[in-house]
Design a protein around this nucleic acid. Structure first.
Lengths: 158, 158
DNA sequence: TGCGAAATCACTCAAAAGTATGACGACAGA
DNA sequence: TCTGTCGTCATACTTTTGAGTGATTTCGCA
């Protein structure tokens, strides 16, 4: 991701240069303003700052791999302004929570039973149980509701 | 947030203009390069794109609130920017959920067992069960985890 | 190529959760 | 005063969860 950012930044830089050159050309052809360079610079900076911010937002968003989500209903979710969720990867590592466990935690949080989770992930209910047991252990939870709550608190799930 | 972004973008724009002006000045004093405007433009664009991306990332990151965990370690917990929670009273009425039921839903969401809830509210576990049964009915939930999830979705609990 | 982590599954037993039904007192409002 | 809602509790029964243990397979990595 770091590299991508650099790459994009470079591309943007070049684009910015070209844009300014274009603006300068236009300037010579049609109008001559005072401080035009500054103004154009400001415009360029503005545009690119905006694009940058937008890009930054976009990058962080998503990255929610995990399973196919049913195709059933398109729910109207009435959650107030869902700011993009950023998973706390560090804590995941600290707690040594595996991908599978995290996945199961997520489905738990959605209110699925062990059986349903098993069906969704194509594994047996028993498997789900062992995963969740380990999960409870790592999260220091005694119940699934507690695990969910801890998970949210720790930024592991939205 | 939208407004803030615009504001920052504007500020950046202005900064960019000033920067370009400064660069131009320097150019006249020390060196004269071909296509210097373009190059500067590119630089500015690059810098601001980077800053923008960084800012975008930063905005999405959540606030860090320090909390004391147990006696041992002092861990920082990531709380998703606690915007003041406003209960959706209207929906409460629509669903005919009573105060007591809501109360129990809240404790459920915190991961308490029926017994614990009972102890906390000084009622029997059976009572908690009947309340939660009715709650599940009203929320169209089959499990407590589902009820919690619905509750959050509907703005009944934080 | 062998080790270790991850994922898978089974089986048992106990505890918690959930369903169904009935009952009783308090209390607000018609 | 009658009615309906709310909160309370019980009993009986089913289902789901969770704990504990052990075993197998897969796979990346040293």
């Amino acid at each position: 991701m770091r590299k991508q950012i650099v790459k994009y930044a470079l591309i943007y830089g070049v684009c910015g240069g070209l844009l300014i050159a274009a603006l300068k050309l236009i300037e010579y052809r049609f109008l001559v303003l005072e401080h035009s360079i500054e103004i154009y610079g400001a415009l360029i900076a503005l545009v690119f700052a905006s694009v940058g911010i937008w890009l930054g937002l976009k990058i962080t968003r998503k990255e929610q791999v995990i399973v196919e989500r049913e195709l059933i209903v398109e729910k109207e979710v009435l959650v107030p302004s869902t700011l993009p969720f950023v998973r706390n990867e560090q804590r995941l590592q600290e707690l040594a929570i595996t991908r599978r466990e995290l996945e199961i935690l997520g489905l738990m949080a959605e209110g699925l039973s062990n059986r349903e989770i098993g069906e969704k992930l194509f594994v047996s209910e028993n498997t789900v149980k062992t995963h969740s047991s380990r999960l409870f252990d790592k999260l220091d939870a005694k119940r699934r509701t507690q695990a969910v709550q801890r998970g949210k608190e720790l930024g592991l799930i939205p």
